[in-house]
Structures are given as structure tokens and as C-alpha cells.
């Protein structure tokens, strides 16, 4: 079974701080990491491979330094890695990003499963996974929390909903987006780290993809950023003090209008 896992390199949110004077993001020294949700997708891809055989290809679109994320993916058990990188992709919104990734997946060719994290922690859109499946015209199951069964004939999975979950059956090839509950990612193995060190990710530019230039980057993106601003940070309010009974009484009184 051939599995492609799409990953994104994002700034580590734990490091994101707001400059109290200028009220802007402080980016110096912010570490880049694999999007936390993609770690679950990588782990699930490796588990499918361990169950069914085959190989896992990690795919990312991003600047040249995104190669680091691919090496990390290899250390976690991915077999191959593809970096799609070109200035022509700059300014891509989710439409153009999913178009570009779909074109790269077509070029990789033989695949049974595409796995994505449910969303990226910087953009938070959850649009690229479904976008890829729409461009490839393959079925999708989003927000999956468990793969019950998978073989060349198809898969049965549990899809998380607001109320619980749906059990869904799908033929392959298929795209899944995964939630955190699906697994606990392993640590990189020593062998994996050695492999990551010597691995040479495949690098493709726009010219390597069979893609319409007008559908790439800013030009292929229907949306535009009009402006970006920092929200007024939430300020703390009142501190209540006293015995448990006293503060409870005071608080209940303060919240009275909200709860009736």
C-alpha cells in the first residue's frame, strides 16, 4: 500500500509572543516545527505501512528550509520525501495550495491513501485536505479518529463528529484528515535519525509539475489579504479573595444574570 502524507512546517505556537510595546508578533528565535496535527498523520501512515506493507512518502510545499520538516518525517518512519518549492508558489491561498499539492501527488503517481492533519496550527483553515481530494476527484473522510480496517479493497474508519462519531466505509484511493485521538506518535528511532541524516528529499519546482501556471501562487488564489492587525490582547479583570464560601457567594452574585 502506498501512502502519501502531506505535512506543513509551521512556527511553534508555544514560542509565539506578542511584543508588549509594538503589539506585534515577536518572531526572532521562533522555532519551526511540523504542524502538530501532521505528526498524527505521519504516525498513522507509518502504522498502515506496518500493517499492510508498502511505503510512505512525506510531501510538503514550502520554502527550501521546509526540508528540515521532511527529514524529521523520515526519522519518524517515512520512506521517501518530496519538497515542492518555487517562488511561483508564493502567495498561495488554500485553493492554489491544494491545487499544487494535488499536482505533486499525481506526479508521485501510484498511491492508495493520502493522509493530512485536520488543519495547520498557523492558518487553522482545515481547507487544504478536502481541497486536495476535490482536485484529485477521490473520496475523502475528514476528522478520522480510528482506522478500523484497511486493505486494497477499501477502508472502514471512524469519523469524529460534534456528538460522537460516524463509522464510514470508503474505497481506495481515498484522502483522510486525522484528529489527535487517532494515535500517540512515536519518538524518532535511532535508525530513523540516521536515515534522516543521509536522506535526499526529491525537490520539484513548478516546471516539474503538470500544472497550469495561472492556477499557481498568488495568481491562482481567489483570496487576498486586505490587512493584518493585532487584536487588543485580553486584559485580566477583577481578582476575588476570601474563603471558599465567600468568593463563591460573590462570584455567583456577579454571574447571576448570565446563568438564569
Amino acid at each position: 500500500m502506498n501512502i502519501i502524507v502531506c505535512i506543513k512546517q509551521v512556527p511553534n505556537t508555544t514560542d509565539v509572543r506578542i511584543d508588549p510595546v509594538t503589539n506585534t508578533l515577536i518572531r526572532d528565535g521562533v522555532e519551526s516545527v511540523i504542524n502538530p496535527f501532521d505528526a498524527y498523520a505521519i504516525e498513522e501512515a507509518v502504522r498502515i505501512k506496518e500493517r499492510c506493507g508498502g511505503k510512505v512518502t512525506a510531501l510538503t510545499m514550502g520554502p527550501p528550509q521546509a526540508e528540515t520538516a521532511l527529514r524529521e518525517a523520515i526519522s519518524l518512519g517515512c520512506d521517501e520525501a518530496v519538497l515542492v518549492s518555487d517562488r511561483k508558489f508564493a502567495g498561495s491561498d488554500t485553493w492554489a495550495t491544494s491545487y499544487t499539492l494535488a499536482a505533486a501527488i499525481r506526479k508521485i503517481g501510484d498511491f492508495d491513501v493520502v493522509l493530512c492533519g485536520k488543519q495547520a496550527s498557523d492558518g487553522d483553515t482545515a481547507q487544504v485536505g478536502p481541497g486536495i481530494s476535490a482536485h484529485l476527484d477521490i473520496p475523502q473522510v475528514t476528522y478520522i479518529k480510528k482506522i478500523l480496517q484497511i486493505s486494497a479493497q477499501g477502508a472502514r474508519v471512524e469519523r469524529m463528529t460534534e456528538e460522537g462519531y460516524d463509522e464510514v466505509e470508503t474505497p481506495l484511493p481515498c484522502l483522510f484528515t486525522v484528529v489527535k485521538e487517532i494515535n500517540t506518535p512515536r519518538m524518532p528511532s535511532l535508525k530513523g535519525m540516521m536515515r534522516a541524516k543521509s536522506a535526499k528529499p526529491v525537490k520539484w519546482t513548478a516546471a516539474d509539475l503538470e500544472a497550469d501556471p495561472a492556477a499557481l501562487g498568488l495568481e491562482g488564489s481567489p483570496t487576498r489579504v486586505l490587512k493584518i492587525f493585532t487584536p487588543v490582547p485580553r486584559k485580566g479583570g477583577e481578582m476575588l479573595s476570601g474563603s471558599a464560601a465567600d468568593v463563591s457567594k460573590e462570584l455567583a452574585e456577579l454571574l447571576k444574570d448570565m446563568v438564569v
Partner: peptide, 21 residues
Amino acid sequence: TIGRSLISRVAIRTGAGLTAD
């Protein structure tokens, strides 16, 4: 979960601009 899964695909198919959340 339904809205985000559905509209992302519809936006691709119809060439629409889509902004999340």
C-alpha cells in the same frame, strides 16, 4: 465538521474564494 468538509470541496469545484472561521 460538516461545513468545513463540504464547503472546501465546493469552493475548489466552483473556483470560489473561501475564508475559514
